[in-house]
Design a protein around this nucleic acid. Structure first.
Lengths: 231, 231
DNA sequence: TTGATTTTATGAAATATGTCATACGCATTC
DNA sequence: GAATGCGTATGACATATTTCATAAAATCAA
């Protein structure tokens, strides 16, 4: 973890319109002044469940997993998040502590704005407040929807669903490098590592995907969709 | 479904402090003026997934289930909600349509405030806006947390978890009448009706609970907790 | 590079869950 | 009062999933 050396201004950030588009120049300056950009290497812990919340955090670059560790010490992944995603927006207004842990899956740049600054802006700019609500609402719905989709499928359907998610929503291409291990994929779909691996092998034998270690190539998208829909 | 004949004023509502405590008298009046209280009988549909969102809704009395119907026509219950809960807060700021359906499990009184009124108040009162965010955040976390707990257990643990939820968080007593059928309990924990019934029977045989139709009595709470923790 | 650790992989057996069939009680309806 | 539908209940069997064992390949640290 280290501070970024060439921090860009929010005004030129491609994710600016997600949240800051209705801020005045003076308000922008406040955000910029209280903002730092932190770089995390692959595997580094960005947020630890239980940490005190002092900052509002979102991704500018990279990929992370959001997870919780249960009482038996087993991790369960809630979601994979990409640039533009707010990684603690669901906790900062109702809890004092981070509710989930977050780890970088690759080199990840995190923007960190003091929570006090955000609160100040919220009080003075109701359009900004409405936008924040819009984002909170959207994020919550995304997570709930995905967990819902996962819960009604069995292993094959779950793996197919996640392969589609990675291909369609993260990489936007049919071949990509898996950002997580098979064990983590299992933690994401609430399945054992062995079953997850077996299912991937089965997809390969069936000619739905091609695999070389972490490199995945979806060959037969139609069939993948069918497996995904059948549950 | 019918309008309540004796609507009480928000100022005397026990749930007032959940949301409205920082409103001025004039603002209260706006809420009251744009508010109606609607009574739904057991089984009546309160919200239909896909409906246009025009109102902000919350429960004053009763019990409801929030659910989605999947592409195979099967319902999946997301949560059971009780008085004080906001039943569409997660949709109103990011979607035009209701994202979930809601049905009354018993006679239920719903407060309905025009969304335009809420938006107007949000723009003029930042403390109110912060409170709304706090509630959104809290609701999202509750749902995500519960789905998370369910997903890492198997049938016995899931049924035990829901029995504890009903006993501890809904009825606050060890004996209660199940507000849902065994099928619905299955829809809540993503299990088949038969397995759900079998598990309940097993709990009875093991002396953990006593049952007479929908009447449930938790006899051995310690053992129920153990089953719940073991997954 | 070596050695240790993790990840991927697969098989066999044990367990959990789903499916199909059947039955009984209860309420509703005609 | 017979017929119907629904919820609860249980058994038998099929399928899905976990668990345990083992091993090769990949990754990492010294």
């Amino acid at each position: 973890m280290k501070l970024s050396k060439n921090i860009i201004n929010c005004k030129s950030c491609v994710y600016r319109n997600l949240l800051y588009e209705m801020l005045s120049s003076a308000e922008y300056e406040k955000v910029n002044a209280s903002r730092t950009e932190i770089i995390f290497g692959r595997g580094e812990l960005i947020i630890n469940e239980g940490d005190e919340i002092n900052d509002f955090l979102y991704l500018r670059k990279g990929l992370v997993k959001m997870f919780k560790t249960n009482s038996h010490g087993k991790d369960h992944i809630l979601s994979i998040n990409k640039p533009g995603d707010f990684i603690n927006l669901l906790s900062i207004f109702s809890k004092d502590e981070q509710q989930y842990s977050v780890t970088a899956l690759e080199e990840t740049h995190v923007c960190s704005v003091k929570l006090s600054t955000i609160l100040e802006l919220l009080k003075g700019n109701s359009e900004f407040a409405l936008r924040v609500m819009n984002r909170m609402s959207y994020i919550a719905d995304e997570i709930i929807q995905k967990r819902f989709e996962i819960s009604q499928r069995q292993v094959k359907g779950r793996v197919a669903y996640m392969l589609r998610f990675l291909s369609e929503q993260i990489y936007h291409r049919s071949d990509f490098r898996m950002p997580i291990t098979r064990r983590e994929l299992g933690e994401l779909i609430s399945m054992t590592t062995e079953n997850t691996i077996r299912t991937m092998s089965e997809f390969r034998k069936d000619g739905i995907i091609d695999m070389d270690g972490k490199n995945i190539h979806i060959i037969d998208f139609d069939r993948l969709k069918k497996v995904c829909e059948r549950g």
